[in-house]
């Protein structure tokens, strides 16, 4: 793990109408770091990921990914202008996202879900993409499901396809937006196992928004507690979960751990 931040939020503001979701957020992630984001709903956790994936723009501040501004382009005189679609396309190649609702393409087979973008966007041949897809299905334990359609799989299996699909684009940064929140309780484990394996074996930078406190504690290098559009408290998981400094963190942890 190097010390250079691969993701940097500098006084980032995000508003939806009158509602301020991110309130001058400062936030950094180092290359290879696994960071979990926890906090009450509406605290802006998912918005951080959606801004990084360029699904939401920002109203103020600067977001930097890999040293380059994400939502801005540097002009020749060094000034920042709003990013063009070309710039966003280029920046997006560094990122991958796993969605709460999986968002698989329902009319495509599992394998086609994974190979579509590598063929169309990265220009891989169908053969290369198929091979990569099969390797990834092996990795997530679904090698025998390649020709099925998403609706023929369980939620847990669908989410594992979602992870394989994101990995097929070879991102440096993988974003997980509540990847187990839409799953039946007995299916959560299989998805967390895959994410845990990735965290252990790959030097991917991982950002995980989750309500699974035990898992966040096991898998992350650092946990950030979000509240009202800012990081209220952050630290190593053992510190934050066992002995939080802030009363607000303590309340939140008590409330979720009681359930």
């Amino acid at each position: 793990m190097s010390d250079e931040p691969i993701i940097k939020f500098d006084k980032v503001v995000k508003r939806f109408g009158d509602l301020t979701v991110l309130n001058e957020l400062d936030f950094e992630v180092k290359k290879g770091e696994k960071v979990s984001i926890i906090g009450p709903s509406g605290s802006g956790k998912s918005t951080v990921l959606r801004i990084l994936m360029t699904l939401e723009d920002i109203n103020g501040g600067v977001v930097t990914v890999g040293g380059e501004p994400l939502w801005h382009e540097k002009g020749p005189d060094g000034s920042l202008a709003p990013a063009s679609e070309t710039h966003l396309r280029k920046m997006r190649t560094q990122l991958g996202m796993v969605f709460q609702q999986f968002n698989l393409f329902p009319h495509m087979t599992v394998l086609r879900n994974i190979t579509e973008a590598p063929v169309q966007v990265l220009g891989l041949s169908k053969q290369e993409a198929k091979q990569r897809g099969e390797e990834l299905l092996e990795l997530v334990g679904l090698a025998d499901q390649a020709q099925k359609y998403p609706h023929q799989l369980s939620g847990g299996q669908q989410q594992r396809v979602g992870i394989a699909r994101a990995l097929a684009m070879r991102p440096n940064i993988l974003l997980f937006d509540e990847p187990t929140s839409a799953l039946d309780p007995e299916l959560v484990g299989e998805v967390l196992n895959v994410i845990g394996k990735l965290a252990e074996e790959h030097d991917l930078t991982m950002l995980l928004v989750t309500h699974e406190m035990r898992f966040a504690r096991e898998v992350s290098d650092r946990v950030c507690f979000f509240d009202q559009g800012r990081i209220r408290e952050e630290g190593a998981p053992e510190d934050l979960f066992t002995d939080p400094n802030e009363e607000r963190t303590r309340e939140f942890l008590q409330a979720v751990l009681d359930n």
Binding site: F99, A117, V121
Partner: peptide, 11 residues
């Protein structure tokens, strides 16, 4: 979510 997935995959 279909639009978002397509965008995230840079299609």
């Amino acid at each position: 979510g279909q639009h978002e997935a397509a965008r995230a995959l840079n299609l």
